[in-house]
Design a protein around this nucleic acid. Structure first.
Length: 870
RNA sequence: GCGGAUGUGGUGAAAUUGGUAGACACGCCAGACUUAGAAUCUGGUGGCGUGAGUCGUGGGGGUUCAAGUCCCUCCAUCCGCACCA
């Protein structure tokens, strides 16, 4: 493959067309365009400027570009912007390791990646570009933050965080590996810190309900969000402590327990508190054993594997609670390691008959219990007393006034009774937590707040926005550089002029990406949004990105949109009308004899198998995995573009798989695509040379010409349909068919009408290819077109029904549903004629011989089926 | 454990309302051109069978004239969430 032929010189032609598009400003528009065209906003998730584009980006942006170009051709005013999710830890790490300022590092990366994107020929509106690390952007974000503060969506409260004592910073859960900080390796501590929260829980219900309106979202993303929001209906029961425990503070004398299964209340065997429950903490203060138990429980960690294996453990507190309905019936209050403080009320009542954990716990500590629920239809007398609990809905037994009722009836009744006697109230519980956005880091959006010893928390006055990140910071010290900055953090209070301190926390970078799509509609405006522009463009008609953002980014963005709506910044409630989640780009992975990963570039194919270049060491082929630096199985997009061109990369990345599925990047595939595009170029070039631009169309054309014209119109129809369905792979298959038909048609080039039809076919083909391989399309278009319009300015081809009709069609002949032959007939041939002709077929006649035809089923233009007996 | 997908040739995959399974492509085989290779072009390519045929969309069952498609059931793989009360 050293000798790849090259009739089409992409290496200078692609940049030529890219400049041409730019010159004509084809992809730009005003914030509020004055055209009368309907709008279409297509957006791909903007990249983090790591420095290099990867194949995932190429797939993502190619998909978006196909849609953008296709919609533009269909007459839409298309907004297709690009920007940079530019804040984040890697820039700070670069600063620490290499002494480059985060800003410089980031802007250099952006420059590299912007050039790569441009080289791929994406039809982006670069006029609207911004990076989230620019004060013009994050200043407006600070404005939003203050607006959210005004409407009560911001709260400062203590929260327990993962604290790296060496790096002096908060770690996200993902950055804690085996209980240790991912960078420092130091054991992570739990620490209570004052943190800023956005009250996303206020929007739990609308965010849940809103999912139902998102018809064009993948079902699984909606289900993931639904489960994440986690609405559950139940009741909070107030358990009274035994009267004798008088030495407790008043508010501890009732323990609230949230349950979705109040029907099993008569099966209660114990009450268990979370180790983090306020009462547990209170008791620990005066009881060493309890304190020790709690410490032990914390040490266990919260990772999944640990939880999986962890034994249910508990300790008695010595307290007892009274059953709400059974007089003088008391239950021990335990502190148990399996009760989560984060969910419900941090306390549960244990019902071993209906819950596996409760049963495990009761068995371990010999706690007696009743069976209260059994499957419907079972005999209460003979149903085996639980060695495994029955956790489904069933029939209540041993439950006083609930006996014999089904779960849903029992629930209803007991909730009513509990409410009547005032020891419970119906509650909706959510799994969704408020969003802690404080990060003790430099490279993020400063939270625009000042701490004044007199006035408390004071928002930075709007006329002092943006609060700009200082550039003279020291990354050699540990902790947050903003906190260590000598002057930036000290200010005077805007109210009372007292010496005050700036908030040194910055925003979680997910905040930056929660509203960028709105900012794109007016990126230079003096407020977060320009209402007329944002209302014109939103919602986004098509959003495209990876499934990894199914929950966090997409949920935060939905929340922000609603919050911005309520603060008067946008009019929509849901930002993304349609969402498409693309699959990953995978590649084979390779290992050497020592088991070390080896990159594809270091490998050579030999007759004896794969070996390492230079050393001839044997290489074993591993699994096909997601491209990643750690597995060294990445392929650099720029290397591919350099060698094969942008159009090759674009076509290949779309051609093999449905876009929502994972795809494997293979060298063979790229080379095959490259060869195909060369062939395509040769075939169309030849047609351009051979045919005359505008011959008179004769009244009747030959059959071959008619067939070709039919293929063209079928292709227009099917490619359009495929693109609408996001089936780029199918669209490409249809384009293959058309080019094959064009190659075939050369044999009939002298037949009547062929000259004209071939040229027309080639012109249509070029337009249909435009969204996928825009450079080749432009180039070929200049050979075929009679006007100076570029493909990027041309309308999408339309097909005519009359040309879709075939002169002959094939009918399948079945006997008892089995194919026994085919017939060539004119369309809409009568059943009688078809049956007669079918009976004349040799094989059909053979199978019908001596058998009685009971029934004939005829589906016009498709099949005829003889139902026979014998 | 809960939830969601997916399962079709050697490979990636197509397949309106159920209506000729495997479109299109990769790979492979054969041939042409070539000193040779590369590139290109032509033809072939689901399994079994010399053949007529026959089997075939994860397994089993069902509905139907007809099932990849609808129903029941089982299996496998992948993904997400997970001590959620």
């Amino acid at each position: 493959m050293n000798n790849l032929s090259m009739t089409y010189r992409f290496d200078y032609i692609e940049p030529y067309w890219q400049q041409e598009w730019e010159k004509r400003r084809l992809f730009e528009q005003a914030d509020l365009p004055d055209s009368k065209k309907p709008k279409y906003y297509v957006l791909e998730m903007f990249p983090y400027p790591s420095g290099q584009l990867h194949m995932g980006h190429v797939r993502n942006y190619t998909l978006g570009d196909v849609i953008a170009r296709y919609k533009r051709a269909q007459g839409y005013e298309v907004l297709h912007p690009m920007g940079w999710d530019a804040f984040g830890l890697p820039a700070e790490n670069a600063a620490k390791i290499r002494g480059i300022s985060p800003a410089k590092w980031t802007m250099e990366n952006i420059a590299t990646m912007r050039a790569s994107l441009k080289r791929l020929g994406f039809s982006l509106n670069w006029d609207k570009e911004f990076a989230t690390c620019q004060p013009q952007y994050y200043g407006q974000q600070q404005k939003l933050f203050l607006d959210f503060m005004k409407v009560g969506l911001v709260e400062r409260r203590e929260s327990s965080v993962n604290w790296d004592p060496v790096d002096q910073t908060v770690l996200a859960n993902e950055q804690v590996i085996d209980g240790k900080g991912w960078r420092s390796g130091a054991p992570v501590e739990k620490k209570l810190l004052s943190q800023w929260f956005l009250k996303i829980t206020q929007y739990a219900e609308p965010l849940l309900q809103g999912l139902k309106t998102l018809e064009h979202w993948p079902e699984r993303v909606k289900i993931m969000q639904e489960r994440w929001i986690g609405r559950s209906e139940g009741i909070t029961v107030h358990f009274q402590l035994e009267n004798s425990t008088t030495n407790l503070p008043e508010h501890f004398k009732t323990i609230d327990v949230f349950t979705t299964r109040p029907d099993t209340l008569f099966g209660m065997a114990f009450l268990a508190l979370s180790p983090d429950h306020p009462l547990s903490t209170y008791l620990a203060a005066s009881n060493n054993q309890i304190a020790e138990f709690i410490t032990e429980a914390h040490r266990l960690g919260t990772s999944e594997e640990v939880i999986e294996k962890a034994e249910k453990k508990g300790i008695k507190t010595g307290l007892r609670v009274l059953h709400p309905f059974i007089k003088n019936k008391y239950f021990d209050v335990w502190i148990a390691n399996f009760v989560l403080m984060e969910y419900g009320t941090g306390a549960v009542f244990g019902c071993p008959s209906g819950d596996q954990r409760d049963l495990d716990f009761a068995t371990k500590y010999n706690i007696p219990f009743n069976t209260v629920i059994i499957p419907k239809g079972e005999n209460p007398e003979t149903y085996p007393v639980s060695n495994s609990p029955f956790t489904n809905k069933g029939i209540l037994i041993n439950s006083h006034f609930l006996n014999g009722l089904e779960t849903h009836q029992a629930k209803e009744l007991i909730i009513k009774r509990l409410e009547e006697i005032g020891v419970g109230r119906k509650t909706v519980n959510w799994r969704l937590r408020d969003w802690g956005i404080s990060r003790q880091r430099y490279w993020g959006c400063p939270i625009p707040v000042i701490h004044c010893p007199n006035c408390g928390i004071v928002p930075v006055p709007e006329n002092q926005l943006p609060v700009i990140l200082p550039e003279d910071v020291d990354f050699t010290l540990s902790g947050n550089p903003l906190d260590n900055h000598p002057t930036w953090k000290y200010v005077t209070c805007p109210h009372c002029q007292a010496d005050s301190v700036r908030e040194t926390d910055t925003c979680d970078t997910f905040v930056d990406s929660s509203w960028y799509f709105a900012r794109f509609t007016s990126p230079h405006y003096s407020a977060p949004t320009n209402k007329s522009a944002v209302d014109f463009w939103l919602p986004i008609d098509q959003y495209i990105g990876g499934i990894e953002h199914a929950i966090l980014h997409l949920l935060y963005a939905r929340f922000f949109t609603r919050a911005m709506h309520d603060a008067g910044h946008v009019s929509v409630n849901e930002p993304f009308k349609a969402l498409f989640t693309q699959g990953m780009v995978m590649h084979e992975s390779y290992k050497d004899a020592l088991g070390e990963w080896v990159s594809p570039e270091e490998i050579e194919k030999t007759p004896l198998g794969l070996v390492k270049k230079g050393t001839n060491e044997n290489i074993s082929v591993g699994r096909i995995e997601k491209m990643s630096k750690s597995k060294k199985n990445t392929i650099s997009p720029s290397a591919i573009v350099k060698r094969f061109g942008a159009d090759t990369a674009r076509w290949f990345i779309l051609s093999d798989n449905p876009p929502e599925r994972d795809m494997e990047w293979t060298e063979e595939g790229v080379i095959a695509t490259y060869k195909f595009l060369q062939r395509l170029y040769r075939i169309i070039t030849k047609i351009a040379k051979d045919t005359i631009a505008n011959p008179p169309l004769t009244a009747t054309i030959s059959e071959a010409a008619g067939n070709l014209r039919r293929t063209v119109h079928l292709t227009i129809s099917s490619v359009t349909e495929a693109l609408d369905a996001f089936a780029m792979n199918v669209a490409i298959a249809r384009l293959h068919e058309l080019i094959n038909a064009l190659a075939e048609a050369e044999k009939f080039k002298n037949e009547i009408g062929m000259d004209y039809v071939r040229r027309e076919a080639a012109q249509n083909f070029v337009l249909l290819c435009g969204p996928i391989i825009p450079h080749i399309a432009e180039d070929l278009n200049t050979l075929l077109s009679q006007n100076s319009k570029l493909v990027a300015e041309s309308a999408w081809p339309t097909f005519e029904e009359k040309f879709l009709i075939a002169s002959k069609i094939t009918i399948a002949v079945q006997i008892n549903g089995k194919l026994r032959g085919t017939l060539q007939v004119k369309p809409d041939t009568e059943q009688d004629t078809i049956v007669k002709r079918a009976r004349e077929e040799k094989t059909v006649a053979k199978f019908l011989e001596g058998r009685q035809v009971i029934k004939i089923i005829h589906v016009p233009n498709k099949i005829v089926n003889f139902v026979v007996r014998g």
